[in-house]
Nucleic acid binder design. Structure first.
Lengths: 245, 245
DNA sequence: TTGATTTAGTGTATTTATAACACTATTGTA
DNA sequence: TACAATAGTGTTATAAATACACTAAATCAA
């Protein structure tokens, strides 16, 4: 209630700490990975955790997320989206901490990761084989992030954030399969992606064992206005509205 | 970064305030309304605002949202869902405030609203004719809430939260039309809702001007597991991933 | 050099969902 | 008794999703 009173004295109230955690996804060898840091100190010493840190008073939440991301991976200009805010009372044994979680999608080839003062190691983990246990409530955060990633994949162009400048249609299909964790039909995938008209053909081919494959470029202009639907199955998992407590 | 260090002194850092704002929707005369409070003091004195307040150190975010909701409307056991966290640096001229916004769906018949110390008035507004301007960035928050409501309506059973225990199928259709802001076909609606198998017939009828209408009850058991898709149009508006800054 | 293997890409038929709209049903009321 | 009003059903045309068979272009191994 103080919020709507003018006689509110900002210093009078005890306040929680606010952190920003960033779940950073990438694709390595066609497999979905997430970046985790290993904690150097108590609590959860030695456990792996989602990178994050306190916000500064002069930066927005998203700025804070970008700063954290840069500190951990050195990348800029990536896809970043707010995931959820976790605020259970005892999620951090030290003090009351409210964490605004973000999802970031980066291209693994573009960055070098590095450990920092608080972590003994930084590593990419395949989402299928995560270390156990994670620090704090980070298993929840991560599970929620993966769920969100899946549900958004079906109606946004977010998969392209994980791909290099040029790519083949079957590589794109592979990303969808990785994230959705399900096989897709090749013919139907070709048809849908062509219909969506989001790709631009390049003159490039990539040679391999079999027939060479055509390479395509993502048309960012189209993706902007076009809120297109790109669904592969009827039962969508819920994208929001989680319970904590 | 202090988050992952053990030598972190919680008192050393300046901290933002954290509030919880609750966008409370209801249906009055078959029309979607939102609850706003009129501010008594600076800043935005006299402006209408989304009800909210500071969180206590010993309550979770959702608990705080429920408390606020109870304080403003006196209701309990309603649908509540986290919407988004707004954290632009200067959104509150008094101090740095981070607001975790929630959506609540209530049945208007169940509560009496009342003004509190900080507000001169509390009122339900039809979402089509909102007062201008709203306090803080609350126009943004509200627009985002309505967008979320629309997109979730299509693949969840959330519309039932706005209805009384028993209702007619055409009343349900009316809610969909109100929230989606578009006319739906009667026959197709009947077919879809029947197929979904979420309703239980009651022996009740309601008499009116024309043919009496059958009343139905929502089957909560079905809704739980069944993540059913209840879509009425292809172009879904984006449910998350807003920009602020 | 030829045929098997491998990866790329196209075509098509069946099933299922959507959308539009015409029709029947049951009440009150002039 | 007929007509206005509201409730509810059925039918048909079109579009989308799915499954799967097919063609294409390269390498590899005899």
């Amino acid at each position: 209630m103080p919020k709507h009173a003018t006689d509110y004295d900002a210093t009078r109230y005890e306040r929680p700490s606010v952190t920003v955690d960033v779940v950073i996804f990438t694709l390595i060898n066609q497999e979905l990975h997430v970046l985790l840091v290993q904690r150097r100190h108590w609590p959860f010493e030695g456990c792996w955790a989602i990178p994050g840190g306190f916000i500064n008073m002069d930066e927005s939440l998203e700025d804070a997320a970008r700063r954290e991301l840069a500190e951990e991976t050195g990348v800029r200009d990536v896809y970043l989206e707010q995931l959820y805010t976790f605020g259970a009372v005892a999620r951090d044994p030290r003090t009351r901490v409210i964490s605004v979680a973000y999802i970031a999608l980066v291209r693994a080839d573009l960055q070098q990761i590095r450990a920092s003062a608080e972590s003994t190691a930084v590593r990419w983990f395949p989402v299928r084989t995560l270390p156990e246990p994670l620090a704090f409530d980070h298993d929840q955060v991560l599970a929620y992030a993966i769920g969100r990633l899946r549900s958004k994949l079906e109606y946004t162009t977010l998969a392209f954030q994980l791909l290099p400048e040029v790519f083949s249609i079957l590589e794109l299909k592979h990303i969808y399969e990785q994230i959705l964790d399900e096989k897709l039909d090749k013919g139907n995938f070709y048809r849908k992606i062509k219909e969506a008209d989001l790709l631009e053909e390049t003159p490039l081919l990539r040679e391999g064992r079999g027939r060479p494959t055509r390479l395509w470029r993502f048309r960012r202009d189209r993706a902007a206005d076009k809120q297109f639907v790109f669904r592969w199955r009827e039962d969508r998992s819920v994208g929001e509205g989680r319970d904590e407590k």
